[in-house]
Design a protein around this nucleic acid. Structure first.
Lengths: 143, 143
DNA sequence: AAATATTTATTAGTATACTAACAATATATT
DNA sequence: AATATATTGTTAGTATACTAATAAATATTT
């Protein structure tokens, strides 16, 4: 039987979902403080992946960065408008829009990646190196 | 000096920020699968905290749930429209709007909390109980 | 008491993040 | 070849989540 005590022991601050939201907020702050070119974390991820993949479809880019099809459209639109990427039609598949980094986009993301290392480092700073490894290992398991 | 290899070893999938986004997505899916009353995680947090605090200002409620002032307004508006909370003016401080759970809201959140336990459990399921404790401990440290 | 600063709530604007419905194209099946 | 299925991209709608500017009320300082 459920006692009064049991009923009241739901501590919001101990729940993984709530904790993740707090950490996301802290990470977003650290991110914004480091990144000069005012990229969002999502835009950063998309540019990193685009550098790694080379020219690819909007759809694939979204899948590789875990950005859904409706969201990737706006992200690509804004990065395009700012001159970091360009788009062109795929001749072999008329459904597709191909996307690639511009020279400027490449320069921006190469700089940003170096800042990205610092962002990760600062986010994990409260933990020892050994603890950081364990944390990342466990986080990957619940992905 | 930075070698070619060093330059290319930025693995997006190993970064805390990217991992958190993936886990948030998985958690949101688990959350939506369990919660009947179609609450969002944010709405859930707000109702849990409101139950715990009792009547309080919109501003305090936002601070206690880490929802900023601009966002809490919409959250409160929607919960109000659905009849889960009611608002009334604070006589002692005319700036404030006080908020409290309705009977319906209390019933909804009491049910939802039981589901919340299962949501946390399922999110952490890939880890052993001992690993879960360590993960939460480390996550709290980087909050 | 008057001036200053802080707190609370609102509004407008931007950027994710998702669902659902849709159209166009490509692929697989019969 | 014709039909059915799957993929790609777009659009509309909802809900966070944030910044910055504003207004009203309260608290603090002088």
């Amino acid at each position: 039987m459920m006692t009064e005590e049991n009923k009241n022991d739901y501590i919001l601050e101990d729940q993984i979902g709530f904790l993740m939201r707090l950490i996301n907020q802290r990470h977003a702050n650290i991110f914004a403080a480091h990144i000069n070119e005012s990229l969002t974390p999502t835009q950063f991820s998309v540019l990193v992946k685009l550098k790694q993949l080379g020219a690819c479809s909007q759809n694939l880019l979204g899948r590789k960065t875990a950005v859904d099809v409706a969201t990737i459209k706006g992200v690509v639109e804004r990065l395009n408008k700012r001159g970091y990427i360009r788009t062109f039609p795929d001749i072999k598949d008329k459904r597709r829009i191909l996307i690639e980094l511009t020279e400027q986009g490449l320069a921006v993301i190469e700089d940003a990646i170096e800042l990205g290392r610092k962002i990760t480092e600062e986010t994990l700073k409260p933990l020892k190196k050994s603890e950081q490894k364990i944390l990342l290992k466990y986080l990957k398991k619940i992905t």
